Amino acid sequence: MLDTKINLLVIDDDDINIFIIKKIVEKTGFDIEMTSKSNGQQAIDFLKDVIANDRPIPHLILIDINMPVMNGWEFVEAYASLAITQKVDLYILSSSVYENDIERTKSYTSVKGFISKPLSMERLTELIKDIRI
């Protein structure tokens, strides 16, 4: 077990998916601080506030693709312009079955991979164990 609190940011406009992820987080046994935002713009604003106030940057960010205001791809591009120097693991978490979405994920060096919804406890546990703090 990691003995450091993990900061998780979930960007998804589906309240049911957020609820499911919260329940999975509770069951992992890890000390996880989860924040959720319903679109990419809210997440960018959140991260700018975190940076401005010298608060802990999320270790792990899970990003849905299809959201209002700013979608997942737009978030990843806007994220690149933030001055974040810490290592952050970004993953696309989507119900998309389109091969071009999976391939597009590979075109972003900041994104570690594509995860199909729903997120499982086993997969979240793997992601957390892979975090290097």
Rank of each mutant, 00 (worst) to 15 (best):
L60V: 02
L9T: 06
F30T: 07
L82W: 08
D3Y: 13
K48Q: 15
Y79Q: 00
T4I: 15
I115G: 01
K117G: 00
K106R: 13
P56V: 11
I128N: 04
H59N: 15
T4D: 15
P56S: 14
I44N: 01
L8H: 05
A80Y: 08
V97F: 06
E126M: 11
M70I: 02
R123N: 12
Q41N: 14
L62H: 00
P118V: 07
V97T: 14
T28F: 10
K112Q: 10
Y108W: 08
D12N: 02
W73H: 07
S120R: 05
G29M: 11
S107D: 07
A83E: 13
Y79S: 00
S110M: 14
T85N: 14
I57W: 07
I32T: 07
Q42N: 11
N39C: 06
D89S: 13
K112Y: 03
D3I: 15
N66G: 04
E33I: 10
L119I: 05
V97S: 14
I133Y: 15
I21T: 12
K37L: 11
I133K: 10
E33G: 08
I16V: 15
V76H: 04
P56A: 14
K22R: 15
N71E: 02
E33A: 12
E126H: 01
I44S: 03
L119T: 00
S94F: 03
I63D: 07
N66M: 15
T4Y: 15
I16R: 06
F19V: 02
I32Y: 07
V76G: 03
S107C: 01
D64M: 05
L82Y: 00
V97Q: 15
